[in-house]
Design a protein around this nucleic acid. Structure first.
Lengths: 217, 217, 217, 217
DNA sequence: CATGAATGAGCATTCATTCAT
DNA sequence: AATGAATGAATGCTCATTCAT
């Protein structure tokens, strides 16, 4: 029945609206300081109404984390054009992730400040990852997998893929933490993909060729 | 009068004790979730007593931030033996900072999770830096200065010193965020100085020479 | 018009269903703790629907009270076979009331726990009776009347009929409060009619004749 | 140290004050409807202060229940003059209990309206008694014991002591529930000891000798 | 100086009730 | 008639902070 369908749609949309509102509220005041009223005001509802869509404040956070995680992971599954060099594939991936981060600046900032007890994921399968930096760890894990599939030993200069992953994620967060709160808002982080790529591959001292740049976009 | 002196000493020491206690409490439960009672219990006092030494919870945090900042900055002022190459000087600095981070693991982790409103520094001269990543920004600023004094354009491969600073700080935080919460505790972060240095200078792909490593310790 | 008739019937039936559901919900969780949702779930409706049939939660309770009261009072109006002794008439009445109580165990238990403000009867003619033990008082009043009509001074050993009534009601409630929550469910309270009668008439010390019992069933 | 002693006294007294206040608040509005603020207002404190003395609302109720239970039980342990008849001993006990009930009218009324989940006794040794009529059952249990020690089979007309106990407790509650809420306050219930005793022993029909009464006071 | 006690402000959550569909 | 959604009004409880002792 179309009525049921429409209703489900409406609910899903409202849930999304609330999540967006929560993202704003949380990133403005922090998870603990933001109140249900803050979120509600931001979403155009009353606090009580939020409970129609989420069981608790924690569940809202869980929804947010799941959302960002999902958006992060999906970029790894998107197809890569055949015949690309490692550098080109990596460049594409970084571009995609930075586009994500661009859209979700405050959410990324929020996730970086969460504590273990704060997040209570829907499927708590991997307790080991419930660290205050759960988000970062999750990224490291997935990126490590990706490197194992897409990089040769030589591409990584003989480094352990996990070290490489941690290195890349660290660079990302490092620059992100700057962009996220820069006022006025810094230029889109996607512009920085090339820089990040160069630093990741060749370090600050760099390879001359690499830094003449842009030929991999 | 010596009595006054002794008193001042005693007060200073108690303040330090409380800060240490707060560091433990904050890093265990997070700044907002940790209560004054938590801190007091950890310090062997009652909550009310803390107000003899600090005006508010926020001021305790301020003290903590100032402490870590101070410890961070002082490493930049310690003398560097003459005649060292850039790599050697940098290596020494990184060693010193990692030693700091080793001693203050949880505090560093705490600082990474703070939000703009949380920190209210004694001397709020630089409002622009009151970001959730204030700590990181502060490090970038000082490290940028250091690079301007100690690195040639060539040492940085032609990169802007601020970019280089941000790059280094990001690497540091990235690896730190892993070490800090690794259970069982990861090996002393100082061991990683060499790896960090290599990645900073030559990236993941690395320079062969650089990675045969250890000749700069 | 028959349609109107049918509608009225349907409404009346739904009201009864809701009252039965409310009886279950209230007796399980207590009047205040039971929510409109509890009642609705028990009745197979949603909370909002209940408002089609009752103006408020309090009115549902009122309906319930009226129902039990009605069932209680009607037993006093049922004809008594002619030529019965006082003991026989009393026995019959007690039997009938215990049969009621048997069917409405939890409802009786509920009524015993109500507070003055809880009940708001449809016809609030007698404010004096709005006690937490309104139910009990109502029983006393009616039973007093009955005794005035059916008992001689001698039957009551010269006691004031109201005292006798209160005595009887007290015994009833005392035993009921045990039976109601006994797990596993005690045997039907009707079995106890004889005991109650004996205690009422002759006390614990009893009259030998009375306790050889059963000749009045 | 006297200071510690005094403090302990002060705390104990405040706890008692709060319990008295809670007794008033609970008996006025019922356990669930009475708010912590109600209790606090009644006690001359703020709601937050109550938590210095009691861990929760439920614990306040627990304290109240324990108090009344304690006062009830202690009357069974007070010595009975030697050489008394069963009737005389029983009379004394009833007098004492009615004196209790007189002082604690509203508390008794409160206890009668509690539900299983409401009460959470400090020592939850006997889960079986956690009925909505826990209070009544507790009285039955203790009174049964007392009868086993102080009454001959003949004194109870051959009845099971538990039946006798339930009978007595029922009479007590029955009359109490009337006195408790009678407005204006009925005459002290102690006056009624003799009536209760007669009804318990000889029923409404009574024994002529018993009702010429008063020779056992 | 240390602290037990007191408190105002606030928060997540619940629930009876309303109303548009 | 039935209901999903929305909400105002509470409510128990927490906590940073104050202050008399």
């Amino acid at each position: 029945m179309p009525t049921t369908q429409r209703r489900k749609r409406a609910i899903a949309r409202t849930r999304e609206d609330i999540l967006e509102a929560a993202a704003r509220a949380f990133s403005r005041r922090g998870y603990h300081s933001a109140t249900m009223r803050d979120i509600a005001r931001e979403a155009g509802y009353t606090a009580a109404s939020l409970y129609t869509y989420f069981k608790s404040k924690q569940e809202i956070l869980g929804g947010l984390v799941a959302l960002v995680t999902q958006e992060f992971l999906v970029k790894f599954d998107e197809a890569l054009p055949a015949g690309m060099s490692f550098r080109q594939k990596l460049s594409l991936l970084v571009q995609r992730q930075l586009a994500n981060a661009d859209r979700r600046r405050d959410l990324y900032a929020l996730l970086m400040t969460l504590r273990p007890g704060d997040v209570c994921l829907p499927r708590p399968r991997d307790r080991k990852r419930q660290s205050p930096f759960w988000h970062m760890e999750m990224q490291v894990v997935r990126f490590t997998e990706w490197l194992r599939e897409n990089a040769t030993t030589d591409d990584l200069g003989g480094h352990d893929p996990e070290v490489a992953a941690r290195f890349m994620v660290a660079i990302g967060h490092g620059f992100l933490s700057y962009w996220v709160f820069a006022r006025p808002a810094a230029e889109p982080v996607t512009r920085q993909a090339s820089l990040i790529l160069d630093l990741f591959l060749d370090g600050i001292r760099g390879a001359k060729v690499a830094r003449t740049g842009g030929h991999d976009a």
